[in-house]
Design a protein around this nucleic acid. Structure first.
Length: 389
DNA sequence: TAGGCCATCTGGTCCT
DNA sequence: AGGACCAGATGGCCTA
């Protein structure tokens, strides 16, 4: 009696862990695919997107509510399933024996009653059991491979979303969320044909992200914003290759950048030699865009990102140091936008103005790195062509 | 210690 | 029948 109920309690806890993430991921994927591919006209329409994003959130919550509701009703019905499932798990490979036993049990219980319809289960012979085990092993192996492929695809996705790090990976769900926002942000760029408002762009990018992820992105933003603030070539003019999308002057500043600690810095900051630059610059042709022939830089160019409303509101004055102290390891990466564009090399080159901005306070970002895979994302080429027409 | 995230196993369902 | 896909369950690892 109670042995059957104990797993239910355990299951409840397990569900809290599993179904939340599963449902979030599933609905996010479904919403993304449905919206993006079934109705392409939605793509460039950020107004619709805003509404949709809210819908998605409400759907998510609704789904969660529904799920919670179902869970209450499911408990009783799940008991037998759970019991059998646990039995299978603990007595791995004996499922067919269970079937055989079940058959016998049914036969015995029903006796002269109505016969169970459907194909009668054959008695399990040792050979069948062995084959069944083999099938299960093969299925497990395939499932592992499938999940590895899925994770590999997610890794590739991580590399083309705005905040990438090998050491501080975005979670699966956050990767999908950020990718969704990224797609919409890029779509809006294509639709409007002009440089987006930075604040709204970033708010779009960070919409729906968890606080930790927002902080991660915010850390990237700080790097970018430093670049925004210091985007001048050593000669006081533009970097070679910069175009009309130069970001001067920058009306937007990350709050953290207003603090003196980011106004004075060390020339020895390692980032200076690692090819980091404003992704916004990269995307919009601002000065200091990296180039692929830079010794340090080979990876794609990240989209523009900057301060997030949530981050700004919730963490002003507190989050930035916190982020700095957590030792988050992330980096901006760069899309292929600059791949065919002649630019000035990485902005943290040997010359001065930018260099002086960097502070040892950003040391948590020392290990930021650029990945060296350039994802063949078509939109990059489109954007590239667009911005250079 | 609780919660988040993840990998894995597993059974069910659908399709070829 | 077998493979692909999905979702539930579970346990491990990590972090606050």
């Amino acid at each position: 009696m109670y042995t059957a109920q104990k797993p239910v309690q355990k299951k409840s806890k397990g569900e809290q862990r599993t179904t939340q993430r599963t449902e979030q991921t599933r609905h996010l994927c479904a919403a993304m695919l449905t919206r993006l591919f079934s109705d392409p006209s939605l793509l460039p329409d950020m107004h619709k997107y805003s509404a949709w994003a809210e819908d998605s959130e409400s759907e998510d919550s609704k789904t969660k509510d529904d799920e919670d509701h179902c869970r209450v009703g499911d408990d009783d019905m799940d008991v037998p399933d759970l019991r059998s499932s646990r039995a299978h798990s603990e007595i791995g490979g004996e499922d067919e024996d269970d079937e055989a036993d079940e058959d016998e049990g049914e036969d015995g219980a029903e006796g002269d009653g109505p016969k169970k319809r459907g194909p009668k289960k054959r008695k399990m012979t040792p050979a069948r059991i062995e084959r069944s085990k083999l099938r299960r092993q093969k299925a497990n192996s395939r499932e592992r491979t499938r999940m590895h492929d899925l994770n590999s695809a997610l890794d590739n996705l991580r590399k083309v979303v705005p905040c990438y790090s090998k050491t501080q990976k975005l979670s699966k769900i956050e990767t999908l969320r950020l990718a969704k926002n990224y797609i919409w942000a890029l779509s809006e760029i294509l639709r409007s044909g002009k440089k987006p408002d930075l604040v709204s762009y970033v708010q779009t990018l960070c919409k729906g992200l968890s606080q930790p992820t927002t902080n991660l992105v915010a850390g990237c933003l700080q790097l970018n914003s430093r670049n925004f603030l210091t985007e001048q070539c050593p000669e006081g003019g533009r970097y070679p290759g910069s175009n009309s999308f130069s970001m001067h002057p920058y009306p937007y500043q990350c709050s953290r950048l207003s603090s003196p600690q980011y106004q004075s810095g060390s020339n020895s900051h390692p980032l200076r030699t690692q090819g980091y630059c404003s992704a916004y610059d990269s995307l919009y042709g601002g000065s200091g865009s990296p180039e692929y022939n830079s010794p340090e830089y080979e990876g794609p160019i990240s989209p523009p990102v900057c301060i997030n409303g949530n981050f700004s509101l919730k963490h002003q004055g507190t989050t930035s140091p916190e982020v700095a102290e957590k030792g988050y390891h992330y980096s901006m990466h760069y899309s292929g936008l600059a791949g065919s564009r002649p630019t000035a090399g990485h902005i943290y080159g040997s010359s001065g103005v930018r260099s002086s901005i960097h502070s040892e306070n950003v040391s948590p970002y020392h290990d930021m790195h650029l990945h060296h895979e350039r994802a063949p994302v078509p939109v990059y080429d489109e954007l590239n062509a667009f911005f250079h027409n």
